[in-house]
């Protein structure tokens, strides 16, 4: 697989959210607006790239049986680093994302990539894979955020585009499920036709 392939597969062919249905909790929980989705996506990308690099670096030193706990410790450390940095320099975003920041630890996407890719490939490929997968995840969250924000609060990245409130249900929990369902249906349709 070429480096470019490793990078781009995370966007469409193996997109974490739309195709593999991984990391759904933060996907639905934080995408009430485009900006929140993007913030969460980038925080996840940061953790994913670093954990992939470290896992690829130490993979031969870790006995198979304790592989999962060791990976979890590595991931949890990076998550805490993100948590602290965000609290210090982006306090507003930290407040909005709230509980979902520590929950990056249990995002199956991250442990999944550590297990399925980084523990079998070299450092450079793992870093590229993490970046591609992470940005693909961020892209999915931003798309969902944009859709929910336009329909739900009538704005695009906080810029009002039509007067009024929009269909509030899209900002609330039910709208998250429904919007994601229709986006996946649309993607299914598009990919099957081509």
């Amino acid at each position: 697989m070429s480096k470019l392939n490793i990078f781009t597969k995370g966007f469409f062919k193996e997109n974490a959210v739309f195709v593999m249905l991984l990391g759904l909790c933060p996907t639905l929980g934080t995408t009430t607006s485009a900006l929140n989705g993007l913030g969460m996506g980038l925080a996840t990308t940061f953790v994913l790239v670093l954990s992939n690099i470290v896992v690829a670096l130490v993979k031969n030193q870790i006995p198979d049986k304790v592989r999962i706990p060791a990976f979890i410790v590595i991931i949890a450390s990076f998550v805490t680093v993100v948590e602290l940095l965000m609290q210090a320099y982006l306090p507003n975003l930290f407040e909005v994302l709230g509980l979902f920041i520590p929950l990056i630890v249990v995002n199956c996407l991250i442990l999944g990539r550590a297990e399925a890719f980084a523990s079998k490939n070299n450092v450079l490929d793992s870093a590229i894979d993490g970046l591609g997968m992470g940005l693909g995840f961020a892209m999915a969250l931003t798309i969902l955020g944009v859709v929910r924000e336009i329909l739900g609060s009538g704005s695009f990245f906080n810029f009002k585009i039509y007067p009024g409130d929009g269909a509030l249900v899209f900002v609330l929990a039910p709208g998250g499920f429904i919007a994601l369902g229709f986006i996946i249906a649309l993607l299914n349709k598009l990919t099957k036709q081509s």
Binding site: N60, Q61, V66, A70, V73, S77
Partner: peptide, 23 residues
């Protein structure tokens, strides 16, 4: 590819300990 560490009891404990300490 370098050989993997064996999953002996000592190895597991030592590795987990080192990983946790560094973290």
């Amino acid at each position: 590819m370098a050989s993997k560490k064996k999953s002996s009891f000592i190895n597991m404990v030592v590795v987990l300990f080192i990983v946790s300490t560094i973290a």
